[in-house]
Design a protein around this nucleic acid. Structure first.
Lengths: 337, 337
DNA sequence: CTGTTAGCGCCTTCAA
DNA sequence: TTGAAGGCGCTAACAG
């Protein structure tokens, strides 16, 4: 493996000069820099990140901690983080909890503490007090994405606001019987978000003097299948159905759509459905939703940390990320009956 | 930041002893090991991966190179890889191309060559000859997942076999007019897989003496929306419709399902649809499919590399990973007319 | 079973 | 503008 002194020797210069030239530091003549760059390219030399880390204190890598990868929000956000990091020459080290609570301590105690990263992004997960403390002791810059964690700053949309917008839209269409599919936390995942959205649902009902029937509030664990089953149970009740359902995520909205379809309940004529996300399936399925961009959120958060590593002042309360109502075919005024 | 000699000093032993004790190497008395472990825990000491790398030659990290993260197959496979690595105490460094061809050289030239990883997993992407050469010069163990790359060994299902199973199932139901939604390669992604599946489609038709109408072969880029649009065009042709469609992935099968639904074409009475994957939406949408598990494939591939890093003999041709027909509500015999 | 001693490959003063 | 030298924190080989 070619090292820095292979380059230095081939050129008859010192390793210090090679190092400076390659990193674009001042104090190297144009001619020398040119020769160094050419020779490094020729020999295929790239500095070892470990050696560079040891000598400089910077790892040029950022960690991302998330509950699981295989979920729309997380994988999209990862994509955004990676994009920002790549542009800055940083590498991305991913720690997934794999959807279970197992190995949490391992991740926290071993991997994260291995001094392999310069900063850490935490994606919407609930942390135990010990984990939070561990994180804060880690002393490198950190930020959470997509879910408020007590004691840490957060990059996300205004969850309450987005949910309110969804409700106001349904109400403006004339709906008065509105149900809600709540996201459910598994493994301490996404705890704050579903709560905020549910509260906005309740508040909207109350503000407009609408009824909040407990039977109309169901739980879908942020997944299609669970949501479909829950919606099916709701529809199969003898009781009066809601004319609209606000789902806390698009995937859960799809579940409602599918349950309705199986029962021959026509959307939007008999039932309106609105979600949050603008998932990839939302357009082909015609779902009205509140769009958010996890990818932008990811890259925003990554850039925030990159900036601070470069010495920018710390931003204590990042601004809310944008959300936007996208009207499609799943919503309409309630049946006139 | 507490280092190894903080621990050593606190205990009055040498750093070598601390190092040995912490890594579970032989030649440390039970008593000493106990003291060391306790003290390290107390001080929150963990070895710096960079220093360990420099001294030992092992980074304890593995790289994953993929075309983009935000796709069912990739994010699931990543999850599997991460699970295997975590269990082995390895970290996962993710290089995504972000769905574009941009920055490819940057990834190949800079990041991957930074000596940050011990082995590399490449997820189904087409490589240029130069990239392939770069990869092979990198000299660390590597393997591809989910898509054959010339010159590299591959972990995946038997794509031809799975496609054949899908076709044979449709044909056994009595279908004779069968269409195919082909996956399309964008950015040099997934080139071999769609081709193998399409060839199996053609071969099955031929074997059974069935007609292969060019109009019945459409392209969906492995995405719902594109596939839905393509299927819509197919359905809107004046010509005779196929009674069954074999889609090269579940997401594309969903597109067909949605296009059919919009036109009032009943599934499975008038149209059967089969996919490949067993995507999370397949069950709620009632899609018959050939199940594969990218997660298992990911962990299998990761373990393969971990084993070889530990000195196991190199496995030149990994066995095919399993696939399985899952029959749901989207397939039935063709209309008797 | 334990300690001592060299580095691993680079960056960063400090001097020239 | 350049070079020399020390050291980042750890592991591995060798003594004891």
């Amino acid at each position: 493996m070619t090292g820095i002194d292979d380059v230095a020797r081939a050129l008859g210069v010192s390793t210090a000069t090679v190092s400076r030239a390659l990193r674009g530091l001042p104090g190297v003549s144009v001619a020398t820099r040119g020769k160094v760059l050419a020779k490094a390219e020729e020999l295929g030399y790239v500095a070892s990140s470990s050696a560079a880390h040891l000598a400089s204190g910077r790892t040029m890598a950022m960690g991302v901690l998330l509950p699981l990868i295989d979920r729309w929000y997380f994988s999209s956000a990862l994509e955004g983080v990676d994009r920002a990091l790549r542009a800055a020459g940083y590498d991305m080290v991913v720690f997934s909890l794999g959807g279970t609570g197992l190995n949490r301590d391992r991740v926290f105690h071993r991997s994260m503490l291995r001094k392999r990263i310069d900063a850490l992004l935490v994606m919407c997960m609930e942390l135990t007090p010990e984990e939070l403390a561990a994180l804060q002791q880690l002393d490198y810059p950190n930020v959470t994405i997509g879910g408020y964690v007590d004691g840490l700053r957060n990059v996300s949309i205004d969850d309450g606001g987005a949910a309110t917008d969804a409700m106001e839209y349904l109400i403006s269409l004339g709906h008065t019987r509105i149900g809600h599919v709540r996201g459910g936390g598994e493994y301490g995942i996404e705890f704050a978000v579903p709560k905020q959205r549910e509260e906005a649902y309740r508040a909207a009902l109350e503000r407009h003097g609408l009824e909040a029937r407990p039977q109309w509030l169901i739980t879908g664990k942020f997944r299609v299948l669970e949501s479909k089953l829950a919606a099916a149970r709701l529809f199969d009740q003898p009781e009066e159905r809601p004319t609209a359902v606000f789902a806390s995520s698009d995937e859960m909205a799809f579940g409602v759509l599918l349950a309705a379809q199986e029962r021959g309940i026509r959307v939007p004529e008999e039932l309106s459905v609105i979600g949050i996300d603008d998932h990839e399936f939302a357009e082909p399925m015609g779902l009205t939703t509140l769009r958010q961009s996890p990818e932008s959120q990811g890259s925003y958060a990554a850039e925030l940390l990159l900036g601070e590593l470069r010495g920018a002042p710390r931003l204590d309360t990042p601004p809310y990320q944008p959300h936007e109502l996208i009207i499609r075919r799943s919503t309409a005024p309630p049946p006139s009956s």
